[in-house]
């Protein structure tokens, strides 16, 4: 067990799976010679060679399409979108081809799309998005959104071994900011098993990705007033751990659903609707969503701060629900 950054944990998972399984290869823009825009694959070209670390043309459609084909031929491709925002170029390849292949033909499609996502550093509207909601709507894709370095490694390892296409959202704001203990060697985290990041009794925050830390700071702040907040980290959005959420709702009866994605049809709506359907008699207050507003992400730092859910926003929601 060693303390590593979130980024190192991702890099480790890739390296260990490539060493373990010769079918695993990487493809993406500038991931070889340059080592990737965020240096996740630094040194990979030297260790694994040009056949397994492929610098691609600037075409997300081609990258995802070639991954789908390679997966059908028995390989285990892992591609990188330089920014998750660019995945929209490959939307058709993902939702029409990769997601439906197993349903149509019965063949597995073991591929991973790595998606550096999220805002918080003035990336503007094209380099800051959290597009998991689009894909959560599409049957046939799995979606992981790790929050901790240990989960970053464990979920990526599982993603590579999974027989389905997996979208792996790695939050850029966590890359070097978050450090944590990461198990050495093989470490696999099962999909669909949420993690209680913090236990509490008064109110539940259901979230994932970087917002886990926003929730944690908010929980720290309100704990001074004696409010005990439970934080449920979903870890994976598809599949998501309904039971863990419902269990927590049964305990606290008040829920905030928190995500960095925009509001309308964000994944939080699915969580809130499920709680309303399956835990209505457990509720002591309305389910509250804290999300980004329905707008493109602004470039200006003050505007971006106003746009993204902040600790103060979560604190305000907690206080409102506590007083309900």
């Amino acid at each position: 067990m060693a303390t590593k950054t979130y980024l190192q944990a991702i890099s480790d998972a890739l390296r260990e799976e490539m060493r373990r399984d010769s079918r695993v290869f990487l493809i993406g823009e500038d991931i070889g010679v340059y080592g990737g825009a965020f240096k996740v694959t630094q040194g990979f070209l030297q260790e694994f060679g040009e056949d397994r670390v492929i610098d691609s043309p600037l075409s997300e459609t081609a990258i995802v399409g070639s991954c789908t084909g390679a997966a059908l031929m028995g390989m285990r491709p892992v591609c990188e979108m330089q920014f998750s925002d660019f995945v929209s170029c490959a939307f058709d390849q993902l939702v029409t081809v990769a997601a439906k292949q197993h349903y149509r033909v019965g063949t597995p499609v073991p591929m991973v799309v790595r998606l550096p996502s999220g805002g918080g550093f003035s990336g503007g509207p094209f380099h800051s998005q959290n597009p998991e909601g689009y894909f959560a709507h599409c049957p046939g894709l799995k979606i992981a959104c790790p929050a901790t370095p240990a989960d970053a490694k464990g979920l990526l390892t599982q993603a590579i071994r999974d027989p389905n296409p997996v979208l792996y959202f790695e939050h850029k704001h966590l890359y070097r900011r978050i450090k944590g203990e990461v198990p050495d060697g093989e470490h696999v985290v099962e999909f669909g098993k949420a993690r209680v990041h913090r236990e509490g009794t008064d109110l539940t925050v259901v979230t994932y990705g970087a917002m886990v830390y926003t929730a944690e700071e908010a929980a720290d702040a309100v704990s001074k007033d004696g409010t005990s907040v439970e934080i449920v980290d979903l870890r994976t959005v598809t599949p998501w751990d309904r039971q863990a959420v419902l269990d927590s709702v049964a305990k606290t009866s008040k829920v905030i659903v928190l995500h960095e994605d925009t509001h309308t049809s964000g994944f939080g709506a699915e969580i809130a609707a499920t709680i309303a359907e399956e835990a209505f008699e457990q509720l002591d207050a309305p389910v509250v969503r804290v999300t980004a507003p329905d707008a493109p992400i602004p470039f200006s730092p003050p505007l971006e701060k106003a746009f993204l859910p902040q600790v103060a926003d979560v604190v305000a929601a907690i206080e409102k629900l506590s007083a309900y």
Partner: peptide, 16 residues
């Protein structure tokens, strides 16, 4: 719910 008489509202969990 700003009708000033919150006592009339019983939440689902309280009702149960």
């Amino acid at each position: 719910g700003h009708n000033g008489d919150g006592r009339t509202f019983v939440s689902p969990v309280v009702a149960r």
